[in-house]
Amino acid sequence: EGALGYVREFTRHSSDVLGNLNELRLRGILTDVTLLVGGQPLRAHKAVLIACSGFFYSIFRGRAGVGVDVLSLPGGPEARGFTTLLDFMYTSRLRLSPATAPAVLAAATYLQMEHVVQACHRFIQASYEP
């Protein structure tokens, strides 16, 4: 009554968009960067990486990032953490276990994903409590 206009907010929209982006990733549609993790190539969308990681933001935001379409990430223990973080970026679900948390923590530190770093610390702390 008397309202100037109506807004219908679709509360599932952001998760539905993310789900579709993940489907595009899995099918290699519009992926524009290859991440080499321990020699394993992972295809992804720069826009998703830059939105989720301070490290990728600093690389791809500038003109220098335009030509970068293959990027090597450190191998070693944190390599497994990078695939967990890539899945997190596209699903909002961060898989952690006592065995994998240190690798995820190291990878999140490298990718400057501070909120994930804090969540890993909370998880590791909790797993030490009796």
Binding site: I50, A51, C52, S53, Y57, S92, M113, H115, A119
Partner: peptide
Amino acid sequence: HEGLVATVKEAGRSIHEIPREE
């Protein structure tokens, strides 16, 4: 079947905020 996975909901911010254009 896969081991039991407990899901904990995190309500806080999950990723960095891209600064708004000054």
